[in-house]
């Protein structure tokens, strides 16, 4: 663990945009470089909302609090700027983009990170893409398929990890990547994430999940429990084990306004 945290969330309150539905009620969280955190919580606890807010989803509004990413006010940045600076969100429900191949999509995303006059080297890109696909047990023909178009649930999730592998984020937010995956697919995804962390030990990961299962394959340094829009408990891997044994009922939903 090095110097300053990559992400620092202080007393973050947020609501659904254009509606009076509060979701986050004062979230505090620090993630150091190279750390792997997990936020666990039941449905509707606000954990996915937190991930979306960090990525800049326009459907939510932060009402107070602050988020610093590498010391910079993250909430001031546009969605694409956040991504270009190294934030990556693996979607719970990836969106279909008919007619745009995965290769074209990723090349465009990489190109957008470059300055004017710089070009993605097509051969390097192709090599890189194929190598990453191999790690994720994906057939090379996958690269020419339209993004998520007609993909099975498992293929969509795998495609999210492929994008993460190619775009090499500094902070990866994985929003329920494990949901809907069988054990085999889960292991492939976990292998992919581990490989990425080996390649870049400074990469930080925040895993959002309902279930403890995924944490058997990707071991977290820190586990947090979110209930009613707040982190009610934080600790090491033992928190997850405890949850597995006792469930979420042990935490009383904090009174909200």
């Amino acid at each position: 663990m090095s110097d300053s945290p990559i992400l620092s969330i202080k007393d973050l309150h947020a609501k659904v945009a254009d509606e009076d539905i509060d979701i986050l009620h004062g979230v505090n969280l620090e993630i150091g470089r190279g750390e792997l955190h997990a936020i666990m919580g039941p449905n509707g606890s606000g954990k996915s909302t937190l991930a979306k807010i960090l990525a800049g989803h326009p459907g939510y509004e932060t009402t107070s609090g602050e988020v610093l990413y590498e010391g910079e006010d993250l909430l001031e940045l546009e969605v694409d700027e956040r991504a270009q600076k190294g934030v990556f969100l693996a979607f719970q429900y990836p969106v279909e983009v008919p007619g745009v191949s995965i290769a074209n999509f990723l090349r465009t995303a990489l190109q957008a990170r470059l300055g004017e006059g710089e070009e993605v080297d097509l051969f390097d890109f192709q090599d890189e893409l194929l190598a990453k696909m191999e790690i994720l047990d994906m057939d090379p023909s996958f690269a020419e398929r339209s993004v998520n178009d007609g993909f099975s649930g498992g293929e969509k999730k795998r495609n999210e990890i492929l994008q993460m592998a190619v775009l090499k984020p500094k902070l990866a937010l994985m929003d329920e990547t494990d949901s809907g995956l069988d054990i085999d697919a889960l292991q492939v995804v976990a292998k992919g994430v581990k490989r990425l962390q080996e390649e870049d030990p400074d990469m930080s990961v925040l895993i959002i999940t309902h279930y403890q299962r995924v944490l058997q394959y990707i071991e977290p340094d820190h586990v947090h429990v979110m209930i009613g829009g707040q982190l009610v408990r934080s600790g090491g891997a033992e928190v997850a084990a405890d949850l597995e044994a006792q469930g979420y009922e042990q935490f009383k939903t904090p009174a909200t306004g």
């Binding site: 326009p58 546009e78 983009v97 007619g99 957008a112």
Partner: peptide
């Protein structure tokens, strides 16, 4: 919104994201 958010969350600027979606759509 979700379409654009997805593309932009990969670092693709809004205008380019719209173009990709339209081209992909008509390309068929």
């Amino acid at each position: 919104q979700n379409h654009l958010f997805y593309l932009m969350s990969r670092g693709i600027p809004r205008e380019l994201a719209e173009r990709l979606v339209v081209m992909g759509f008509l390309g068929e």
